[in-house]
Design a protein around this nucleic acid. Structure first.
Lengths: 209, 209
DNA sequence: CTTTACATACCGACCGGTCTGTATGTCAAA
DNA sequence: TTTGACATACAGACCGGTCGGTATGTAAAG
């Protein structure tokens, strides 16, 4: 029957099922961490059974890995808005990136927090695979920031003494720490203050004495 | 018998037993997080049985709470070296504090990481008690830093436009984030670079234009 | 165009083991 | 003899992961 065929066609969608599991994992682990989230919870949240789960993923860790990678892709896509316009002044690109970060603190009902920071804080010492995946994401972000800093330096103050890569790690650390402290103190405003100070710090790098 | 009496006297020491549990908790949870560390593991690490554990602590959460408080006391005691000498220039006190932080990255075999940041990252959303305890510790650190910044401002450049409290939160976030990123990328050197940049940032606040 | 053969997607019961927490026992000190 | 400091034993929920089975999709042979 046509109805039956249509129904089953929509229900059997392995890519969507897989993604549903990833989405559920991100939602739950962002709240409860890795060890605090059980496979049963994930299955329930994703509307799937354990059998289905282990068809798509070898184990819980490999799902977390996929979730971190997905988180990284989503994040990069959002940050890309800052650097995709290559005609824009690199310093303006940096400010655009800080705008995007500040935007993350303004979504109503969603607290600004990072899957990479959470997974890494919890699992860096016990899961080499997760640690390495998180390192990859952090490094990617830093590389992009360093490129903009480097271009801005070349354009605005080539004789400045800072190392773009070091400054990029500095900014990344500040960003991760801001989300951590902001969550702990339940203050998105503090995150924004930090970003504002970061802004003037970056500007200061290019000011001629 | 005297030997037996002496032995039992040393073995039956409730305060020491309690502390042994706390020490074990810090050691294990710093590696595996809260949910990843079981009560049995803690008992084994502390050389005690479950009965003893639940004699001293109501539950796992209250032990973690005690561990965070102990961690805070230890940390404050170490940082206090920076601000205890009230005759020292406040800017020099700040540098002394940054020295101490850098010192944490130089202990051989011990990776520089923070119990407060870890517990908070994992439990802020699910355990109000832990979140609040972590907030308290972060606030305490920030208050001390803000005091030094404020005194330095008064002394060196009273007309400077920065807010000492905001800058203190900025430094605390940077510090927490540096430990997180440093752990993820297994680079203590990166933490030290960040501290160096923080140093010149702080100095910059007091430079007259 | 059917039929047959096999692959993929998913279900849900079930496994051995681990989890936090409790109830009870022991024994030294006061 | 009471009390505090533990040990022992165990309850019962829950854990990650397996397994047998079923529904659906594909594709080649007849």
């Amino acid at each position: 029957m046509s109805k039956k065929a249509a129904r089953t066609k929509r229900e059997r969608d392995p890519a969507a099922s897989r993604q549903r599991l990833i989405d559920a994992t991100v939602r739950l682990m962002l709240r409860q961490g890795f060890a605090g989230t059980s496979v049963d919870m994930i299955c329930q949240e994703a509307g799937m059974t354990k059998g289905g789960f282990f068809h798509h993923f070898e184990n819980k860790e490999s799902l977390a890995l996929a979730a971190v990678e997905w988180w990284g892709r989503m994040g990069t896509a959002q940050y890309a808005e800052a650097w995709k316009d290559e005609t824009l002044d690199p310093l303006a690109q940096l400010h655009r990136m800080l705008d995007i970060m500040a935007g993350f603190t303004r979504r109503p009902g969603v607290h600004c927090t990072c899957m990479v920071g959470m997974m890494s804080q919890e699992l860096a010492a016990t899961s080499p695979a997760l640690r390495s995946a998180c390192e990859k994401e952090l490094t990617l972000w830093t590389t992009h920031a360093a490129k903009m800093l480097s271009a801005a330096k070349k354009k605005h103050r080539p004789r400045a003494k800072f190392d773009p890569v070091q400054v990029a790690w500095f900014l990344n650390s500040l960003w991760q720490g801001s989300m951590l402290v902001g969550k702990t103190c339940r203050s998105q405003e503090m995150i924004r203050h930090n970003l504002k100070l970061a802004r003037s710090y970056v500007d200061g790098l290019f000011e001629k004495p």
